[in-house]
Structure formats: structure tokens, C-alpha cells
Computed example of a mutant assay.
Amino acid sequence: MGILALQLVVPAIAFFQEPPTRLGWQMYSGIGELPKVHVETEANTTEKIVFMDVAANNRSEIDWRKYLPEFVCQENANAIAVELAYSTRTESFECGK
């Protein structure tokens, strides 16, 4: 009974840990979320960017806030801010030119 309990409890605990971690069980579960990317330009317009157009992979355990805004700012000369929208939150990053 103890072994059966371990087989149920350990995956249940790992399933609810957040965020997904590299080489962790969640890495393969697909529970991570990729952001929707929007760029605010100098002309006061907002452009939607397709995530796979600016990222080489869609691994959910990567913290895209660290890398994606800076890259999008460098690639878009008219960008003044980058917005990453998740289902529960939206974060905005100013481009430092």
C-alpha cells in the first residue's frame, strides 16, 4: 500500500508545482503557458507578433520575460514597449534605446 500511495502522491504533488521546471516532470506535461506578444510603436499603434516568429522554440519552462522583450525591442526599430499577455496577467516592458 505504501508503494501505491507513493506512486499517486508524488506525481500529484509535482503536477501542482509551478512554474514548470527544466528537466522536471512538468516539462513534459504541457501545462506551461506561452505569452501573446504585442508591440507598442512610436506611432501609438499596437502590433501583434506571432510568438514562433520571434522565438526558436516554445518551451514553457523558460521565463520569457527575461529574454523576449529585449529581443523584440532590438528587432523592431519603432518599438517603445513590449507587452506579454498571459491568461491571468499582462506585463509591459519599455524599450530602452
Rank of each mutant, 00 (worst) to 15 (best):
A56F: 05
V50S: 11
E42N: 10
A81L: 00
T46A: 09
H38G: 09
F15M: 04
D63A: 12
P19R: 00
N58K: 11
T88W: 07
F16R: 11
K97A: 06
N58I: 10
E70W: 02
S92Q: 14
F16P: 01
I3R: 09
N57D: 02
V82M: 08
G30P: 01
C95Q: 04
R89N: 11
I62D: 04
A5E: 03
G96W: 10
E94K: 14
N58A: 13
H38P: 02
I80L: 09
E75Q: 14
K97V: 04
D63L: 06
A5L: 10
V50F: 07
T41C: 06
I13N: 06
N78S: 15
N44T: 12
L34F: 05
N76K: 12
V82T: 04
P69Q: 04
S92F: 03
Y28R: 08
E75A: 08
L34D: 00
K66Y: 08
T46R: 14
S92W: 02
E75V: 08
R59K: 07
A79W: 03
V50W: 06
K36P: 03
F51R: 05
V50N: 07
L84H: 00
E42Q: 14
L68W: 01
T45Q: 11
Q7G: 09
S87M: 07
N44Q: 15
I62K: 11
N44G: 08
T90K: 15
A85Q: 15
E33M: 03
E47L: 11
A5K: 09
C95R: 00
A77Y: 11
L68P: 06
N58T: 12
A55S: 15
G2W: 08
I49W: 05
G30Y: 06
A77Q: 13
N58Q: 13
Q74W: 07
T21A: 11
G30C: 06
H38V: 13
V54W: 01
E75S: 13
Q17K: 10
Y67N: 10
S60P: 00
L23S: 01
T21I: 06
G30R: 07
A85K: 13
W64V: 03
C95F: 03
D63W: 07
